[in-house]
Design a protein around this nucleic acid. Structure first.
Length: 473
RNA sequence: CGCGGAGUGGAGGAAAGGUACCUCGGGAGGCUCAUAACCUCCAGAAGCCGGUUCGAUUCCGGCCUCCGCAACCA
């Protein structure tokens, strides 16, 4: 039986348009998924949308539609993006408003409750009458709401369910110690270790339905809904059939997760504690991406510098975006984006680099070789090592090094000249070049699926590309 | 001392205890298979101050500067 492989992204919250950071996450996960597919593994790849909670309710109210309508509309945009990014078509797209997920989340709650990790408690919240919203301390400046300075905050008391996060400190620390590679990169493991070491407080996992009806009802309490985080995280289980199809679940669990650095705590501490509370085994690995900044600043709606993946795809094409995200965004640290840089990279590496190389080789090949040799294409060992270690950056660097050395070979060994003087020698060089080009195509498959298949079929049919692979911009 | 990250040629990035690499840009030459593409060569760099070391840009400490995060914010 084929080895199984389960990978997921975080579910983006649908209060805003998808931005390029989510594209980064899903593209990277897709590359890993496609790579494991190419190894013949039985891959389950999950993404979707996180759709409950106050912000969604507010947005829907603003637009005068029901939260479900709002969610349907927004979720569609995300699934369209998945398609446009050329993500593996068999990806599972889960919505936290799916019936199956709602049932699973409630079931998960019950187990945690039965195991004694959920309890009811009164808790005090600060409420700003101006905003008509609860405020957390971190939102306040000098004890006042920054939007309504001088106004007294009201203290309200509310009864909520709490999760005994505090019970899991030792178990979490043990998890981190035992699995030094549980989190990538290692400094994020250190970060979360410090956080958990410093002590954990229980957190609220429900909301009063009167105040916030847009959520999954707490089992056995019609007055409360499950807090959106607690519900959303369960999707990683629901996606692979839990709890109904335990056979499927056992086949794929545990999961490899991609997430942004803002999700470190939720994914690698809270979620892991939740799994322990439900008696399930922990995730296999969590890979933490950095952020993409825009011209040096954090992307935000108020700054108006949010980069839309749709715009980039329309301008440069899907594979160009996939290339940019994997090669020119740091694997783990923050990286800056600018339009000028994207264009520069597009022209230098895709048009002048890869695209031009394909043209020059295939021109020679189609002109001088009767047919291209059929080889079984095997990727070099180094490539596999990088891919198996999730080191997409090094893997793709390796490909471009190869491209560079092939350009050099053509200039230095001049097959275009040799073929006229000494056909046998010229042919031999050409055959090697074509063969290497096929390997490039093969290695590019997970990264740039369309481009890769174009290269491979050009080689196979021994054709000169009528349209350049990447037009100069 | 809340936690963490970063300061490398004109720009953006990488690596490494001992000739600092890549891309873009600048300069010079070459080639003609190719998308005015490609190849070769040249100029140009490590925030500041200490320490460890035969030797540090790399390790350690301090300072300065920048940037995240600070949990019920999804």
């Amino acid at each position: 039986m084929a080895k199984s492989f389960y990978i997921t992204t975080t579910l983006p919250y649908i209060n805003n348009e998808p931005h390029v950071g989510f594209a980064l996450e899903v593209v990277r996960a897709d590359i890993i998924a496609r790579y494991h597919l190419s190894l013949g593994e039985d891959v389950f790849f999950n993404t979707g949308t996180d759709e409950h909670g106050l912000k969604i309710l507010q947005k829907a109210t603003e637009q005068n539609i029901s939260p479900q309508e709002y969610a349907d509309k927004k979720s569609k945009i995300f699934s369209d993006l998945i398609e446009k990014l050329d993500i593996w078509p068999e990806i599972n797209f889960i919505r936290t408003t799916d019936k199956k997920h709602i049932k699973a989340a409630q079931h998960f709650w019950k187990i945690c409750k039965d195991n004694g990790y959920i309890y009811k408690k009164k808790y005090k919240a600060k409420y700003c009458i101006g905003c008509e919203l609860e405020k957390t301390d971190s939102e306040l400046i000098a004890g006042e709401c920054p939007l309504h300075p001088g106004q007294q905050l009201e203290i309200i008391e509310e009864e909520n369910y709490f999760f005994r996060f505090s019970s899991f400190q030792d178990k979490l620390l043990e998890l981190y110690k035992k699995n030094p590679e549980f989190i990538l990169p290692d400094y994020r493991l250190k970060e979360i270790y410090n956080f958990v070491s410093s002590g954990l407080s229980d957190f609220s996992i429900s909301r009063l339905k009167d105040k916030m009806p847009w959520g999954i009802e707490v089992p056995g309490d019609k007055k409360q809904v499950i807090y959106v985080w607690f519900d959303a995280l369960v999707n990683y289980l629901t996606a692979i059939g839990w709890p109904e199809d335990m056979e499927k679940f056992k086949k794929y669990w545990p999961v490899i997760q991609y997430c942004g650095k803002d999700n470190l705590r939720q994914q690698s501490a809270m979620w892991q504690a939740m799994l322990l509370a439900a008696g399930l085994s922990n995730s296999k690995k969590i890979i933490i991406n950095g952020f993409i900044t825009a011209d040096g600043k954090k992307m935000s709606k108020s700054l108006g510098n949010v980069i839309s993946p749709f715009t980039l795809i329309d301008e440069y094409g899907t594979d160009a975006l996939r290339y940019y995200l994997t090669r020119h965004i740091n694997l783990f640290d923050d990286s800056d984006y600018s339009d000028a840089r994207f264009k520069e990279i597009y022209n230098a590496h895709l048009a002048n680099g890869l695209g031009n190389l394909v043209s020059r080789i295939m021109k020679l090949s189609s002109q001088y070789l009767n047919q291209t040799p059929f080889y079984e294409i095997n990727c070099p060992e180094e490539y596999h090592n990088f891919m198996n270690n999730y080191n997409l950056n090094e893997a793709i660097n390796f490909i471009w090094q190869k491209i560079g050395s092939m350009d050099e070979t053509i200039s230095v060994r001049k097959p275009f000249e040799l073929i006229k003087i000494s056909p046998a020698e010229g042919e031999k060089i050409l055959i090697d070049l074509v063969k290497d080009l096929a390997i490039i195509g093969k290695m590019l498959e997970p990264f740039m699926p369309k481009t890769a298949s174009r290269i491979i079929s050009l080689v196979r049919e021994n054709k000169f590309p009528e349209q350049p692979l990447f037009l100069r911009k």
